[in-house]
Amino acid sequence: MLIAMSIFSAISLALMMGFVSLERNFAATTDFATNHTDSVRISDYLALDLRRALSVQTAPNSTTITIPSYYDANGNPQTPQLDGEGGVYYGASGSSVQINYYLANGTIYRQQDALTPVAIAENVSDFNFTVTDLGKVATTRITFKPIFRSSGASQSAIDATAVYDTVLLRNTRTDTGTGVY
């Protein structure tokens, strides 16, 4: 009886430990997958605006992108106009829309002009996004801290989560002053 109980306890303990390990692993994997999905979404948001950017100002976890003022007050597309120097604008001459991406209180927001910021990724306090302005192209890099180890992720593990994107800026850059690329 004693032997049976010991064997039963050992098997139960092993099973319990196995379940706990599986559960922790599952949680870490789910977290990784969720964070990866968040990274891709942030990258896609940035790429969407960078493609149509007129200018870009970057800082760690903060990027401001200026895009054409394509929509009128009712949200309808406006007719393009020529500026007399080979350029094109929408709406009033010189008008544009500023979009600011920033990380605050564990949430990454996208704010268009003075409108209410929209959260594009939540619970991402461990995220870092950087945009590098290379003139004709901009690159984005997004990382997060995976939770596979209770002692915390090493820098190499964080680097391994990086999602990169390189975006060709389609519009004539207005902030370089060197004309058409």
Partner: peptide, 11 residues
């Protein structure tokens, strides 16, 4: 011909 303006309609 050269592209001088590019916008995505995100409505």
């Amino acid at each position: 011909y050269q592209i001088v303006s590019w916008v995505e309609d995100t409505r």
